[in-house]
Design a protein around this nucleic acid. Structure first.
Lengths: 186, 186
DNA sequence: AGTCGGTATGTGAGCATTTACTTGCAAGCG
DNA sequence: CGCTTGCAAGTAAATGCTCACATACCGACT
């Protein structure tokens, strides 16, 4: 079988476990059962490999949020959609999702600011809902952060092994109620 | 002036910016205006330096939570106390706080499981409140994660430069209301 | 007060090792 | 054949850390 997908999987696992800087090309190659040189047939550098994987996760999550939230109306439903988007991303590829979650700050410099990242998307939804008086007023940046925090911290604790092996979606009802509560609270 | 505190400050800044693995002893020494060797007069290794700083932040935050939450009664007040504890830690030394926040997962292996970390403390408070029927039932591990997420994600976004330069405590009222809402939501 | 000696602190050149990455070669394949 | 994919061995640079040496500090003893 071709080495490229094996390398991607291996890299994902190693990056998630050790961080981008802590991961070595040797480890990735060994885990993929491939020589180190094989990596460089497909990527220019270790960082390019890492960025590619990260951006894939980033795009997937953003797309899911846009799709789910765009398909429904009203803040309550949009909150549920947000939780659903995160849970779908987490359930369909937990390694990719947790890599994105835990290594986010490593890639901040590479962020293109096109407003299509999860935080900005949620911020926009909240701003709009405030305009329509569906939400009480308040700094949308903070409200967005708090709402997302409900989900991401739960996911983080799962990644840390504090929540057992259940899928993230197992906690979706609880998270949905909490996100809705955060949005309305003031 | 003695080099040790200068090294601690420099290391904190470099670790927070580049991560533990991404930080080099050369960079730390340069920033502290000290030779590399000086570091090793006070610490056995780069990792020991990092762990020491991390544990200081960890202990400070845990102590604040225990003190603030222990001084009041009722979940509402304890929620406010939790927010206050985080804000105090963040305001009194933002560099130390953000280092702890962003590099947490690097130090998970070193965690001693004495129940005195922030998450477990909050979990215990929640369990007790549920027993006393002050809170609706639900997985305390998840509820604790969600409540803490409200605060930590806000802090993270501040660290990412998305919230301006205001102190974290500037958002305390909003966060307090949100945490209380999360606790009661179901 | 002065000076001796031991210890703590800081230097900077340098060490062994590890790191990301390259290169020459060969096999697979349409 | 021509092109892609993979390997094994290598390279130059960087990294964490050490060590011989220099200086500052500080109490004890005359």
């Amino acid at each position: 079988m071709s080495a490229k997908p094996r390398i991607e999987r291996a890299a994902l696992e190693v990056f998630a476990a050790h961080g981008v800087d802590g991961a070595t090309t040797k480890l990735i190659a060994a885990r993929a059962e491939v020589s180190e040189g094989a990596i460089y047939r497909h990527w220019k550098s270790k960082d390019e490999l890492a960025i590619g994987l990260f951006m894939a996760a980033h795009k997937r999550l953003s797309d899911l949020i846009e799709a789910e939230a765009g398909a429904v109306h009203g803040v309550e439903a949009k909150a549920a959609a947000l939780v659903k988007a995160y849970c779908t991303a987490a359930d369909e590829d937990w390694t990719l999702f947790s890599f994105h979650l835990l290594q986010l700050h490593h890639f901040l410099p590479y962020y293109q600011d096109d407003g299509r990242d999860p935080v900005t998307l949620v911020e926009t939804i909240i701003k709009y809902a405030m305009l329509k008086m569906e939400l009480p007023p308040g700094d949308p940046r903070v409200v967005a952060a708090m709402a997302i925090g409900v989900i991401t911290q739960t996911a983080q604790n799962r990644a840390y092994g504090r929540l057992g092996e259940d899928a993230l979606s197992a906690h979706a009802p609880l998270m949905t109620a909490a996100v809705q509560a955060v949005l309305m609270a003031r």
